[in-house]
């Protein structure tokens, strides 16, 4: 039987790892090279990198960060794939088939798409034909406004008025994506716990594997969300950075509670 996955998400801005809050505030908390070593020791299930740089300027001046930052997403891919022997997903700012090809050729197993799903669906379809559905993750970024689930593109900046929860899932399925990364913008970096209601609704409405992200502060949040019937993956960003050995300790606890983890 397939295991549920516990997935750290690393947000990268200008070559450094940042803490993210509501998709807006970003504080530098580390460098890519150190993190790679840490995650390798932890024997993790899968790693997702999201590049949230708004420009291509990589801040290699930050030498006060002990080890310098990397210069491009390609460098990160290169570095990570030499050290980490696990499934790797990359996302953030991908707009074309060529970028997808480049990432998948250079060591990524999957790409995470958001804006491109709506602005360039033709090339998303083409990518699925070439690499298979399993290589394409659709990131559904959403906020809850007056109790309604509203979806966004452009790093949470532009609302997708034309979609409801049901129609956006249908759209993603018809495109042929292999997986859904459900990301709550409101809960990002807040530690308020997962948005269980929306997560349950999405899992119920699709046959695609769903990874839930946004809001975790401790192991109880993982346990609570992992109990959702049919949920494939539990993802978190900040939590893994600020709690000592959070990943291996979480895995151990989840297994002790009889949940189906590796």
């Amino acid at each position: 039987m397939l295991k549920q996955r516990l997935i750290p998400v690393l947000f990268i801005k200008n070559g450094l790892i940042v803490r993210s809050e509501k998709f807006v505030n970003h504080k530098i908390i580390g460098n890519v090279i150190n993190e790679v070593k840490r995650y390798n020791q932890w024997d993790i299930d899968e790693l997702i990198y999201i590049d949230i740089s708004r420009n291509t300027f990589y801040d290699s001046r930050r030498d006060d960060h002990k080890i310098q930052s990397v210069k491009s997403i390609d460098d990160i891919l290169d570095l990570v794939s030499q050290e980490c022997f696990m499934p790797l997903s990359f996302g953030g700012g991908i707009r074309s088939l060529n970028t997808i090809k480049k990432y998948l050729k250079n060591g990524a197993d999957k790409v995470v798409l958001n804006t491109m799903l709506y602005e360039n669906p033709k090339e998303v379809k083409k990518a699925i034909e070439i690499f298979g559905a399993q290589a394409i993750i659709a990131s559904l970024d959403y906020k809850k406004i007056n109790g309604e689930v509203e979806f966004y593109k452009d790093f949470g900046k532009s609302q997708l008025d034309m979609f409801s929860l049901d129609t956006i899932i249908k759209y993603i399925e018809e495109l042929g994506c292999g997986e859904i990364f459900l990301n709550s913008i409101d809960r990002d970096g807040t530690g308020e716990g997962y948005d269980l209601g929306t997560i349950r609704r999405v899992v119920k409405n699709t046959n695609l594997p769903v990874i839930a992200c946004g809001g975790a502060i401790d192991i109880f949040d993982f346990e609570e969300v992992a109990s959702t019937d049919g949920l494939s993956g539990v993802a978190a960003g900040n939590m893994f950075h600020f709690t000592e050995n959070a990943y291996p300790r979480s895995k151990k606890k989840l297994k002790e509670r009889g949940l189906n983890f590796r």
Partner: peptide, 10 residues
């Protein structure tokens, strides 16, 4: 069961 069979299995 879902196909492809994707993920960690024993």
């Amino acid at each position: 069961l879902k196909v492809p069979h994707m993920g960690w299995n024993e």
